[in-house]
Structures are given as C-alpha cells and as structure tokens.
Amino acid sequence: MLVDAPYYIPGSLAEPAPSNPQDPQASGPAYGQRVAALALRGGSLAVFIGVLVFFSVTAPFFLTIGNVGNVLGQSAIAGVLAIGLTIVVIGGGSNVVTGGIDLSLAANMGLSAAVYATLVQAGYGDPVAVIAALGTGLAIGAVNAAAITLAGIVPLLATLAVMNVVAGLELVLTNNTVVPASTELLLALSASGPFGIPVLAYVLLGFTLLVAAVVQFTPLGLRLYAVGEFPEAARAAGLPVKSFVAGSFLASGLCGGFAGILSVSFLSGSTTGAGDMLLPVVVTALLGSVFSRRLVPTITGTLLSTLFVGFLINGFQLLNISSTLVSGVQGLLILLVVSATTLLRRQENV
C-alpha cells in the first residue's frame, strides 16, 4: 500500500513545509551520526594501534618481523573462516537471526580436514585430497544454500542443523581421534617462506587479497551488498536475490573446505574440536565492520579484526598473561561496538 500524501493541495509548492530538507535541523542528525560513526571507526583503529604499541613496549619481541609473521600464520585458519562468514553476512544482511549467518563453518572445516587426512592415510595423493576437501566444503555450502533458498529455513537454524550433521560425520569418519597426515603440499604450507615468515601467513594475505578484490572491487561484490542490505532495492534493480544468497553460502562452504586444508597442514593432521572455533569466528567477523568507513562488513575489515584477535592472544602469551582474557576482551569489544552503533542509530531516529 502506497502511503498517500495529504489531499490535493493547490499551490502548496509555494509553501515548503517547516521540516524541509534544507533545514539544518533536519540534516543535523545525519551529520552528527557521520561524525560519531567516524569516531567509532577511528576509535577502534586507535584501540588496535594502542594495543600494538602497548605490547611492543612491554614485550620487546612483539614487533619483530618473525613474531608478526607468526601471528599472521596462526591467524590463517580463523581468518579464512571469518572471511567466509563475512561473505554470508554481506549477502544476507546484518540481522543475524533472519539475515546471513553460517554456523556450520567451523564444523565444515573439521569435516573437510578429516576428509583430507583420511584420504591421505588411505594412500591418495594431494590432488585427490585437495579436490575432495574443497568438494566437501562446497557440498556443505550447497546444502545450506538449498535449505535457505528452497526450503525457506532461516539461516540461523538451517546452518545450525547442518552443523550438527557435519560435526557428526566428522566424528564418524575419524572416530573422534587425531588422523595424522603428511604430504608435500602440507609440508610446503607449514614451512617458512621468505623473510622467515610462515607460508600460511602469505596464504592468508593472498586469500584476503583475492576475495577482497572480488567482493570490494567488482560489480558482483557491489550487488552482493545490495542484496544483503536492501533486497527490495536489489530486486528493483533486476538482481536475482536468491541466487546471490545461495552463492554466498557456496562461497562460505568453499572457505570452510579451504580452511580445512590449512588446518591439516597447521596441525599435521585432522584433529577434533573444530566446533570450538565457531563463536570466536562469528565474533571476529561481526567486529570487522568497525574497521570500514561505512560500518558495514568488509573483507579487509575482517582481516584486521582477525589480526587484532591474533595479536591479543600473542601479546598475552608474550607477557605470560593467560590468553583466556582474549575472549573477555572480544566480548567486551563487541558489546561496546554494538552499543555504540545502536545508540547512534537511536539518536538518528529521534
């Protein structure tokens, strides 16, 4: 139903209403909001840098190339998963309950890793194992996509159910044991590259670059944002909304498979407990949006947020502080960030 404007009013154009758009009062909130948004973004960057400075002063080893490389390498798995989740959040919108979320990502990584390691154990080579692991991830993504776009289950529940199935399959496959695996590819991935920085660090940076190029710099990415943020507008622009949503889950599934391969290399095999990564990855991806100018989820923002968490863990370790504080810091940060954005929005609506 279109909302009808007041009755026919001859000559009313001569008389702009008091709340006209040029009134500074009317544009005030938007302006104030921008300033506050800037402060929020600047503030989080300042916190990030502040943390780095704090650690580098208190733990001299912190800012060495070797250590930074280590942090990057150790963050690779979480980073790839968080990037996968970010794609889903962009395409599904930031309302986590009805919008984009993929709770099956961590379990996906676990199963993909198990598939890889099991195949290697069974004597298959890297090519078969890689294809199988990525295929596993993609298949899980396809199930999610079908459940959400065809059956119409909300993403939170669909991926929750899929997570259960996938985690179960991993247990069935591995009997809840460690499956060691060692291949040339795995060795190469876990080795050190140029400057003594782990290869995984380069992988993370390369992967981020690739995904960021697609998501932030191509028409495809722009359309994905439109689909997630304002599906009606996307539909009006002639975009196939459902295909985009399905595609985002396929992409995130693929990320899960890729992270699986990385984890086999990092841990020299497939191990149990992949599910524990889920909530930290969710928090990381959601935090990432404060590093973007428009306060939306971005791939680079997610990378920064991943590294932030990585540096926190690393710094605490160097200072011999229990790294358990990390989750508290993450929790407080997300509450702080979300409170700030919520309060901003409320101000805007007044």
Binding site: N95, V96, V97, L279, V282, V283, L286, T324, L325, V326, S327, G328, V329, Q330, G331, L332, I334, L335, V338, S339, T342, L343, R346
Partner: peptide, 19 residues
C-alpha cells in the same frame, strides 16, 4: 541499550567465559 539479543547474548557469552 537496545542491542539485538543475538549480539548482546553473544557478547555476554564471551565475557562470561573470561570471567
């Protein structure tokens, strides 16, 4: 404050774990 329940309770979960 008006935070969405998912995010609020997720934050609580993390803070609670650290506590």
């Amino acid at each position: 404050i008006g935070i969405s329940p998912f995010l609020a309770t997720l934050g609580t979960l993390f803070v609670g774990r650290s506590v």
